[in-house]
Write a protein that binds this DNA or RNA. Structure first.
Lengths: 295, 295
DNA sequence: GCCGGTATGGAAAATTTATTTCACCGCCTG
DNA sequence: CAGGCGGTGAAATAAATTTTCCATACCGGC
């Protein structure tokens, strides 16, 4: 059982060795390896029991993993990781302050891609904070109720809104809603939308400048009597005007590139909010026959 | 005697309170207090025995100290310090803060929908901060170069990754790249990917659990000799292994609902970074004006 | 100098955490 | 299809750490 190779001496070594030998590990050990690589903080700081729990493995598997790397047990491996963490911590403390300083003075060199990332992170963070302030609880509640009550959801968003729409379509379906995603393939959006019923809901996502298709379909649907939930950047845009409820989102706009962080965050909130709503058996004891209408 | 006042809730609180009450402590307790203030890392990470040894006191003195501050024992105080230590730096604090954040979410028993939004905002914000820390400039630069050099881009991501993929496809096209979006319509992804050439690049986005289709296509493409840029949550996932370059993203994960905020932020960075790269004629002067805007 | 009361060190008890053991399972091989 | 073999989970065991407890030392006031 002896591992001839010596145990790694530094956290970086450890990481490298795990990567190198990853393929030679058995299934469970690979699972542990993944967790070590993906969540080194966990490994460094938590107890074996907690780690095992999070990684969905047995504590003994972690011990075995450590031993297979040449450690006498799991604890030495943890110590190694923790030391590495501390070292990183010390240097990061400095780097972080420098970065803060740079941000405020902001003479970022053009083309420094790394700085770009920081800029976008900053912008998105602000957008998220803003989202919290501009969207009221009441509206979210209303939106969730609308979604919950709808027989079938129609979801639409083109161009820049398409990712948000597809996220909603995918996630809401996961939660068990019947979802019809108007993906516009073949230019058939209008036709696809024609089947909407009175007790269905169209979720339309659109930002300035509004895609013609989206506007047209939304208006048609509204006229047909179905409800419309709009996610938009304006309360008076063409989409908003014909909607039952509008959720206004102002995404960050860094260097003329609009982000979608806030929109997706809102979408996520709607999805999980709906999940809660459906899970809790309301006034009447409803049978808990699971949310899995259509997978 | 135990103090009736409540224990501090944050590491900063703790520090402040210790300072404020320092004079009221007895000799030995002051000694402990000094050590807590001077070596917070020790307190946070080492065991009581080790700390006691270093501080030249008895373990029981530390316990008494913690209790005199309102903690039930020394361990909770340690946890507080550890959280605080980590919170200083996003990279390190991320996991821990998310954990803490998750427990507080669990306390929101009935899921007030309005509160949910705030929670997701928080979660996404953490993920963004973490992104900045974990993704290195170097990798972003490399990624942008890869994209820039590619003749044609193939972009693929299914299920949860689909929004990211569609965003990239749309935006990169706006920037003027030739983009082929493997949308998987009609289950034709494999066929669509077959046309890839040696000097093309596949951008594959995939998170655990990896969509079978994505894995298959990525492997095929890699074997065919084209380059692959992976955006994934693991460095050892099936996608990562066959990729030229992997950008690792850890999106926030609350109640099993993963966000995409960080992924999209990264995508955005790539797009704008590419825009810069293409705009400036090779190595000449850097002028920072226009970015080509997405509509 | 004696008598409360409080603080302290040390060590036992309790608890938590890490490791080992072992029976079982699936797989491959002969 | 039997038999070995490595891998695995669960539970026993061992180790460690934390907490409690108590005898004693210390410090004031009488």
């Amino acid at each position: 059982m002896s591992e001839q190779d010596l145990a790694p001496q530094t956290a970086e070594d450890l990481r490298a060795i795990i990567l190198a030998r990853y393929d030679s590990f058995s299934g469970r050990l690979q699972q542990v390896a993944r967790h070590v690589l993906d969540h080194p903080d966990d490994l460094a700081l938590e107890t074996l029991t907690v780690i095992a729990d999070r990684a969905k493995v047995q504590p003994s598997a972690i011990v075995r993993f450590a031993k297979s790397l040449g450690f006498p047990g799991a604890s030495p491996m943890q110590r190694l990781l923790r030391d590495g963490l501390l070292a990183k911590h010390a240097t990061l403390g400095y780097g972080e302050r420098v970065r803060r300083f740079n941000t405020s003075v902001n003479r970022t060199v053009d083309g420094e891609a790394g700085a770009l990332l920081a800029e976008f992170v900053e912008g998105d963070t602000l957008a998220l904070q803003n989202l919290r302030q501009t969207v009221g609880k009441a509206d979210i509640d209303k939106a969730i109720k609308l979604i919950n009550q709808a027989e079938t959801l129609y979801i639409m968003g083109f161009r820049r809104s398409f990712p948000v729409a597809s996220y909603l379509a995918y996630s809401l379906q996961q939660v068990g809603k019947r979802v019809f995603f108007l993906d516009g393939v073949g230019g058939l959006a209008r036709q696809q939308a024609r089947t909407i019923q009175q007790n269905d809901l169209l979720i339309a996502i659109s930002y300035h400048p509004y895609a013609e298709e989206t506007v047209a379909v939304t208006e048609a649907v509204s006229t047909a009597g179905a409800k419309v939930l709009a996610i938009s950047d304006s309360l008076v845009g063409p989409i908003a005007k014909v909607s039952t409820l509008v959720l206004q989102v102002k995404d960050s706009d860094v260097r003329n590139f609009r982000s979608l962080a806030a929109s997706l965050c809102l979408a996520q909130t709607l999805v999980v909010g709906l999940a809660f709503e459906r899970e809790r058996p309301p006034v009447v004891r409803k049978r808990r026959d699971k949310v899995r209408a259509s997978a």
